[in-house]
Amino acid sequence: MQSGKELIDTALYGGIPERIPVSIVSTAWIFNNYGQDLALVDRDGEQMAKSWLAFNRDFGADSVCPMLSPMLIPEYYGSELRIPQGGFPLLVKPAIQEPADLDKLEAFDPAGAPRVAAAVDCVKRLVKEIGSTTFIWLVCIGPISTLSRLMDTQLIMECLVEDPGFIERAFEFSVEVFKTTMEPLIESGVDAIDFSDPVASPDMVSPRMYKRFFWKHDREVAKWIQSKGVHAIYHICGDVLRIIEEMQNTTARGLSVDAPLDLAQARDRVPDATLIGNVDPANIIMNGTPATVTAACEAAMIQGGSNGRFILAPGCDVPPTSPSRNIDAMIRAARQFRH
């Protein structure tokens, strides 16, 4: 019988695993569930690892998903963020207030960011304890969307139209920062890096603009990750049907897709891709019941997995207040599902 690690590895390498694997992509729910303080936990590798090890013991999923804090790079460069009680980080004051501010930012030095060391510590602990059987799936914000925490998203949107040269420079800067940040995590033994790019969503920018400004950088990131011997998993929020072929052309081995996407149509468009998703985080995982979660998971596995490689996962980050019984239902659904 394949271990969780083997199931996910097989799916990402383009094979058909013994059963559909499941990954609970979560940067906040996990710590909420185990009583950790979201404002502090990302500075403590031992505590982060403790939560994921407990999750691995209690739920028996195929992967654990340590995170690189989405606050790390923005705060390093002086953005002010805050975490509401039980919520995701909010940008209060961005480091880049106007395009000229970009030129003041220096190269990123991981030694000056304690959260990198905490994430590395967490990953090393997970690799040591469970890495031979459980897939280590690192979750982070990709470089393009990290920029939306260095500067206001509205300013990015304005510059895409009025100052494309600046946006190109800003994206290039962010990609370099991303690579520098990821190096020690890759060395620590992660199996995959799941980088998300919500700003590239077709809910925000046109497929034309995605292709002109975003795609080449995300492809560079995917190729770079995979050149290091680690799987690249690429996530864009919203209904990505119009850009799913371009997403596959980034060469990322896993395409993580959000709840609004019609999985059956996506499967038709990219028959060879490993699709990952796409259970509705808010309406099903947070507000549903185990019965509705099970039904949604089965529907996703039939549409996404009956004729191709598939990993069951939330469509986007699991909301922090989701009931644990719904997470349990999701994992059971994958374990019990048969084609």
Binding site: Q154, M157, E158, L160, V161, E162, P202, M204, V205, S206
Partner: peptide
């Protein structure tokens, strides 16, 4: 019609 997205709408709003 799928011609305009957030950046274009935003600039028109401005």
């Amino acid at each position: 019609q799928g011609e305009y997205f957030v950046p274009e709408i935003l600039m028109s709003a401005k």
